[in-house]
Structure formats: C-alpha cells, structure tokens
Simulated assay, not measured.
Amino acid sequence: MVVSPRLTNAQLALLELFSFEMSEVEVLSMRHALMQHFRTRLEEEAQKAIQQKGITTAQLEEQLTFENRTERLGQIRSAQ
C-alpha cells in the first residue's frame, strides 16, 4: 500500500487561497512571484553564510567556477 505524504501548512493555505479557476497568464504570474520570493530568501541566506565565513563574493565565485567535477572534488577533500 502506498501512503501519500500529508500536505504542509503552506500547501493547504495555497489550495484554499487559489481554489478558483485562473488563466494560464495568472498561473504563470503567480509562479513568477513565488519564485522571486524564494530567490530573495536564498540570496539573503547566501549573504549571511558569506559573512559568517568571512569570504568575499569573488572568492565564492572562484570556488564555484570549475570544469572538471572530479578534480574539483579532489581539491575540496584535500583542503579539509
């Protein structure tokens, strides 16, 4: 037997809030607004982490820019 997960409080609130038909344009607009909200939250969390670790944005970008995943993983492991 497959048990479906319970809906979260946010999912229930959205179901109640949007319990009417919406045009495709309205749905896309709503999705865009939600994505912007979570992008802002993510950027704020990233900035907090950068400040806590005492690194610059340039240093972070340098760490995230690589072509060979295996090589990069080796670099990370050797730095620990």
Score class of each variant (00 low, 15 high):
residue 77 R to Q: 02
residue 33 A to K: 09
residue 23 S to G: 07
residue 36 Q to S: 13
residue 61 E to H: 02
residue 60 L to I: 03
residue 77 R to D: 01
residue 19 S to D: 15
residue 26 E to H: 03
residue 52 Q to P: 03
residue 73 L to C: 01
residue 59 Q to H: 02
residue 68 N to D: 10
residue 65 T to M: 00
residue 64 L to C: 01
residue 51 Q to P: 05
residue 54 G to M: 05
residue 25 V to T: 11
residue 17 L to P: 02
residue 14 L to M: 13
residue 53 K to T: 08
residue 34 L to T: 05
residue 7 L to E: 12
residue 34 L to E: 06
residue 57 T to P: 07
residue 38 F to P: 06
residue 5 P to V: 08
residue 26 E to A: 05
residue 22 M to H: 08
residue 33 A to M: 10
residue 52 Q to N: 14
residue 58 A to L: 10
residue 4 S to W: 15
residue 41 R to H: 12
residue 44 E to F: 02
residue 43 E to W: 05
residue 33 A to P: 04
residue 1 M to D: 10
residue 23 S to Q: 04
residue 60 L to M: 14
residue 35 M to L: 15
residue 68 N to K: 00
residue 7 L to D: 12
residue 79 A to P: 02
residue 41 R to F: 08
residue 22 M to Q: 11
residue 56 T to A: 05
residue 25 V to R: 13
residue 53 K to V: 13
residue 51 Q to T: 11
residue 51 Q to V: 08
residue 48 K to A: 13
residue 39 R to E: 15
residue 4 S to V: 15
residue 33 A to I: 06
residue 19 S to E: 10
residue 18 F to I: 05
residue 45 E to H: 08
residue 4 S to G: 07
residue 63 Q to C: 01
residue 64 L to I: 03
residue 62 E to Y: 01
residue 65 T to L: 04
residue 70 T to I: 04
residue 73 L to V: 06
residue 49 A to K: 11
residue 10 A to I: 14
residue 51 Q to H: 09
residue 35 M to V: 15
residue 6 R to Y: 10
residue 15 L to E: 12
residue 27 V to S: 05
residue 68 N to M: 02
residue 68 N to I: 01
